[in-house]
Write a protein that binds this DNA or RNA. Structure first.
Lengths: 172, 172
DNA sequence: CATCACTTCTGCGAAATCCGCACACTCTGG
DNA sequence: CCAGAGTGTGCGGATTTCGCAGAAGTGATG
C-alpha cells in the first residue's frame, strides 16, 4: 500500500527534473517529497523514503544520486561553529560598485567564507565568514574583502549566539 | 593500520564531550574529526569514518548518536530554496529595545524563520526567512516581526541569488 | 506506424552496513 | 577496594545498499 504523494502523475510532467530558463532544474512533487524526507533525517534509508513517497527503493536511490550530482541538494552534517568551540563568526554586508557578480565570485573563492548571497536592499552582498579567532577575522575583513577592487564599503555583524538553524522549509 | 588523527590521546581529556561553563559540550579531537568526515558526506558509512579517525565502527556509531542526541550536530539535506523553485527568501536585520533574547525566542518560534543569530553591530538580531511568495514575505515582516513588542526597527534584504553555501569549516 | 534513443522504475541477489549486546578497560567517588 | 559511569571492541543477525538486467513510457525520425 503506497501512500501516493502524487495522485496519478498522469500527463503533468514526464521528467523528474529538467532545465528551465535560468538553467536551474525544476523538480517534480516526488523529488520534493524525497528532499523533505532527507531534511528530517539525512541518513533515512532509501526503502523508508520509498514507502513514504510511493517509489521503489532503487528509484529513490537513483533520484537521490541525481539530485546530489546536479548539486540541487547536499547531505551533510551541520553544526554551530561557535558551539563546537573554536572560531569567530560574522556576517558582512558589502556594497559594490561595478560588477556585483565578480565580487561575489571572489568571495566564494575564499575558504573562510561559508555563505554568499546577492541581495536587494542597502547591501549588495551578504557574506558569512568563519574564522579561527579575532585576528583572523580582522584580517579577512580588512585585508582580503576590503582589498577587492570594486568593494565600496563593508559592515560587520559579529555573531554572539546562534539561536536557530533549520532546514525544514516544505515541512509545514 | 589506523591513521591516528590523535597522536596518543594520553592524559589530555577523559571525556569525549563534557559540559563547560556555558552549558555547551566541549568536543575532543576525535569527535571533531568525525564531524569533519560527515561534513564532507553525511551518509559516509561508520566503518569508513572509523578507519579515518582510528576507532571501531561501533564506537563511531555511538559517538555520532550522542552528538545527534546532544544537538551538537544534525545530519540533513540542504538545498537552495530559490533553486528548488518556489518561495521568496530574505535576511532581516532587527533592532531591539529591552530583552534581545526574548525577541530572538519569538522569532525562533516562527516556522518561516530558518536562521536566527544574535549579533554585535548595528543590528541586534539577524533572521533569515523563507516564504511562499512576496505577499507571504510582506506579511511575515510587517505583521508578525514588526508586531513583536520590543522590536524597534527592521531592515530587509531580499535574496536575489545564492552564490555559496558550505559546511566545511575545519576542512582547510 | 515502426523503430531507435533516452529516461525512469522495478525486481533481484550479493555485498556491505547497521544495530544490539556482552564484555573489557579506565577513571572517580564513596 | 568496590561500585558506577563512560567508552571502546568484537561479533553475529537483520537491514540496507549496490549493481544490473529487463520493462515501460516518451519523443524524434523516417
Amino acid at each position: 500500500m503506497h501512500s501516493d504523494v502524487v495522485a496519478s502523475r498522469s500527463a503533468d510532467q514526464r521528467d523528474s527534473s529538467r532545465e528551465s530558463r535560468n538553467g536551474t532544474p525544476t523538480l517534480d512533487a516526488v523529488s520534493l517529497a524525497i528532499i523533505q524526507q532527507l531534511q528530517e533525517d539525512g541518513r533515512r534509508p532509501y526503502a523508508a523514503i520509498g514507502k513514504a513517497v510511493g517509489l521503489s527503493e532503487a528509484a529513490v536511490r537513483q533520484r537521490v544520486q541525481k539530485l546530489l550530482d546536479q548539486g540541487v541538494m547536499q547531505i551533510v552534517a551541520v553544526t554551530d561553529p561557535l558551539t563546537v568551540g573554536f572560531r569567530r563568526q560574522a556576517m558582512v554586508g558589502i556594497n559594490v560598485e561595478g560588477d556585483v557578480e565578480s565580487i561575489a565570485d571572489a568571495l566564494t573563492a575564499m575558504s573562510e567564507v561559508e555563505y554568499v548571497v546577492m541581495t536587494a536592499g542597502s547591501f549588495d552582498i551578504l557574506a558569512e565568514i568563519v574564522c579561527e579567532d579575532d585576528d583572523h577575522l580582522l584580517d579577512v575583513i580588512n585585508k582580503r574583502i576590503r582589498a577587492l577592487p570594486g568593494v565600496r564599503s563593508t559592515e560587520s555583524f559579529v555573531y554572539l549566539k546562534l539561536k536557530k538553524q533549520t532546514y525544514m522549509w516544505g515541512t509545514r
